[in-house]
Design a binder for these strands. Structure first.
Lengths: 335, 335
DNA sequence: ATGAAAGCGCTAACAG
DNA sequence: CTGTTAGCGCTTTCAT
């Protein structure tokens, strides 16, 4: 078998046409006769010709790549979003470049720069922190951007979110309807939009059901496993013997895991509290005290973001910025 | 601010040199005078010039991209490997293109083709299934390949593995030393090298400790959560009242989860069995019956694969194929 | 409907 | 040490 790289020129020679015509056939130019189209197609197959995307990109100023910036690769939640992105992009011919920010602002900055220099056609960002300034360099280069999952300040472009407020409201309401009156709250940094919206949902549910807010029952921590562990411990110590609460709403999966880890260390629990949390993962049913979870449409969030991005890339949408808010769903676990 | 794309030519004009010299400075050509180097550097900064990787790639036949093919994006284990890959590659200037095969052979084939056409400089594959034939098209195009995690038949190139045999042997031995004599086994398809090696480790440990193998206690299922659930159920039914085993070794994390899910449905357990399994994840400590896990060095596996790949890309190593086998570690959980 | 020619931005001989 | 030239493989006017 021949190992040399086949170019449009080679195809042209075999088909007895010019390279320009080969290009036209490849790109489905309408005004090429059936006859030549066929002979070019034949030559393309015979030679196994593939367009060189670097040459094409150089000429057309399109790399047919899209960058995805995620706070963490080894994270089920983000990677489900990534999966949704990939699944939508692929059939459109785009390839995904993934970057890990390790939840670090500076690294996020660096990765944006990197993708810009790589000439990606667009970027999907799962923001690491709270400031949209960082994304302006992309706008400036006319590289479309879509955010997913979190809002950030100083950003007004396209964005895809889950309905955090109503998700939290609904699940806390469920707890209340089930008879729980003393519901603790484990939340995250208020700078993170998802954390603060879920907190608001919690408060709204209490209010609507005429339950007085008790700040002793609210703790805020880091958005990860350790944060959940620490927060749970804090509540536990504050409300000795856990007589002051009978249920807990936790703002995300990882904190839920951490909280469960802590509770598992308390062998002398008189009566175990019930837990509701955001995110419904494969493992949620194994979390000992889980009663309800709020399922976010992770794949759909990714796909929707990819769709908005391609619309921008192809100027297919209005100048107007779009915000897509996707509904959540409550999943019940028997206790 | 100027929005036009800055080229080497622009820099050359500002610095009063030729584009070739600009290129030389960018690429650290040794024989350029300090004087011109400085003025070029100055112009580069002033103009904010960045090399266009498409043009460079077209010229040099290097895209500075590496493809990663994984059976599943939303999978903690694979994504930890991916993270290791990314972490190693990035400082070397390479960008990672990720592809999801959805555990499907045909999709894997397609992705390989896609990456080949994208002119990636190399490919790291976490194999979906068992046949290395699929990777030969890459060899044929002189695109280096490194496998991670699993062996496949008909493949003899570079590969990075965990020591599955010794990991399984060690952890099963631990169980035996702890006094367990009737150890069940939940495994996977023997086509998958990791599954079969871990099975062998299990058998070897039994043998070494003079425990007779009982095939009634061995079940093989799919390598995922559902597979673990089904397998556990099957063992449970076969060995009614679970008098016939007091411990279980499970070949991976996901099956461990599934098995735990099943056991959680059995409220009438007289005495809970103890479980040891491969993979130590964030959630492992929450799996109710976990006693030991075998931790694989996931990040290191990824990094090592990336290293082998770059060595190949730069012809830095011998013609000889390399197999790297990384040790595992046993993690104990108190019951 | 098709070909000729130019050029995207870069690097690599080849000169000097 | 540096400039000139050519060309990577493709698309795209401009002709015809």
């Amino acid at each position: 078998m021949n190992n040399k790289i086949v170019t449009a020129k080679d195809v042209a020679i075999l088909a007895g046409v010019s390279p320009a015509t080969v290009s036209r056939v490849i790109n489905n130019d309408k005004r090429i006769s059936n006859e030549t189209t066929n002979s070019v197609r034949y030559a393309v197959n015979k030679l196994g010709y593939k367009v060189n995307p670097l040459a094409r990109g150089l000429k057309t100023n399109q790399s047919m790549t899209v960058g995805l910036i995620a706070p963490e690769l080894a994270n089920e939640f983000y990677m489900n979003i990534a999966k949704g992105v990939e699944r939508y992009l692929r059939p459109h011919g785009y390839t995904l470049l993934v970057c890990n920010t390790a939840e670090d602002n500076l690294i996020e900055q660096d990765r944006i720069k990197h993708l810009r220099e790589r000439r990606v056609d667009g970027v999907i960002i799962i923001p690491t922190t709270g400031n949209g300034e960082a994304y302006k360099s992309l706008y400036h280069k006319k590289i479309p951007v879509v955010l997913v999952d979190r809002k950030v300040s100083n950003y007004s472009g396209d964005i895809v979110l889950a309905n955090n407020l109503s998700g939290a409201f609904n699940v806390v309401s469920k707890l209340i309807e089930d008879g729980y009156q003393k519901i603790a709250f484990i939340g995250g940094n208020a700078d993170v939009s998802t954390a603060s919206e879920r907190h608001q949902g919690y408060l709204k549910a209490l209010k609507q059901h005429n339950i007085k807010r008790d700040k002793q029952l609210e703790v805020f921590g880091k958005f990860n496993v350790q944060g959940g562990y620490d927060a749970m411990q804090k509540i536990w110590q504050r409300n000795a013997l856990q007589t002051k609460f009978d249920a807990i709403f936790i703002v995300n999966y990882f904190m839920h895991i951490g909280a469960t880890k802590f509770l598992n260390t308390q062998l002398n629990m008189s009566k175990a509290p019930v837990i509701a949390s955001f995110d419904d993962m494969d493992l949620s049913p194994l979390l000992s005290f889980a009663s309800y979870t709020v399922a976010q449409p992770m794949l759909q969030m990714g796909a929707e973001a990819a769709k908005l991005l391609l619309d921008r890339i192809n100027n297919r949408n209005s100048r107007q910025n779009k915000t897509v808010i996707l509904p959540t769903e409550i999943v019940a676990y028997r206790r």
